[in-house]
């Protein structure tokens, strides 16, 4: 299980560096707060129906995620630590460690976004368990799809809007399921059985993305 220890080491390194400056977390929190405030002002006094609320919430999360998650491998290039990582650990360890860190960040982002959204826009939450499950599975799917892509864009010359361009087409199946589930959680009378198909689709999506990433990461990471 050497690769697992390596993955844990990568995760701890990233978590420690993040907790020292809290740059990514603070930036994401402010981004989400500002974006939800913009939504609030743009919507005005109009009534926000559950489908609208679900769509707006996930648009905010999606944009925050592609802004925040693109950094995972760019920071290694900027610090010049890529070669050290390549020497120290197998590719799978690095991918899994980075994925775990990205899932943690996305989870924090999702929870923060949903809370601020609930506070400012005020959709009624009828099924908190379903909403939480959706946020967790959504975080796994989002991080699973964007981690490999952020490793790709770290290699490009100008990585600015590239993560959004690369990840949005890939994220559409995820968006479809999470929006339906969130809508269900905002409406009265939500049941688990009504959500079963979309939850399975979400689990399948996350699993598929992570499996494909593990298989392909080697080719991105090694020259």
């Amino acid at each position: 299980m050497a690769w697992l220890h390596g993955a844990i080491a990568v995760f701890q390194k990233d978590a420690r560096l993040e907790l020292r400056t809290r740059f990514a977390l603070n930036a994401l929190a402010l981004f989400v707060a500002a974006a939800v405030l913009l939504v609030r002002f743009a919507v005005g006094n109009a009534a926000v129906t559950p489908p609208m609320a679900a769509a707006l919430l996930w648009i905010v999360i999606l944009f925050a995620a592609v802004v925040g998650l693109g950094r995972a491998f760019i920071v290694e290039e900027e610090r010049g630590t890529v070669l050290l990582l390549q020497l120290a650990l197998p590719a799978t360890s690095i991918y899994v460690g980075k994925l775990a860190f990205n899932i943690a960040i996305t989870l924090a982002l999702n929870v923060a976004a949903a809370s601020i959204f609930w506070l400012l826009v005020g959709p009624e939450v009828h099924a908190l368990g379903l909403l939480t499950t959706t946020l967790v599975l959504g975080a796994v799917g989002l991080a699973g799809a964007t981690t490999l892509l952020s490793a790709i864009i770290a290699r490009t010359v100008s990585s600015g809007p590239l993560l959004a361009v690369l990840s949005f087409p890939v994220l559409i199946p995820l968006l479809f399921s999470v929006v339906r589930l969130t809508q269900l959680a905002f409406e009265p009378g939500a049941t688990w059985s009504a959500a079963a198909t979309d939850l399975t689709a979400l689990v399948g999506y996350g699993g598929l993305m992570i499996t494909a990433s593990v298989m392909l990461f080697e080719y991105v990471w090694r020259d």
Partner: peptide, 26 residues
């Protein structure tokens, strides 16, 4: 767009291939 953003041609070939396969999975 990804192909356009990569300068080195070996890297371009490899990363574009990875993206194509990753997108095919969805």
């Amino acid at each position: 767009v990804l192909r356009g953003a990569l300068d080195d041609e070996r890297q371009r070939a490899r990363l574009a291939a990875v993206y194509a396969l990753f997108a095919t999975v969805t």
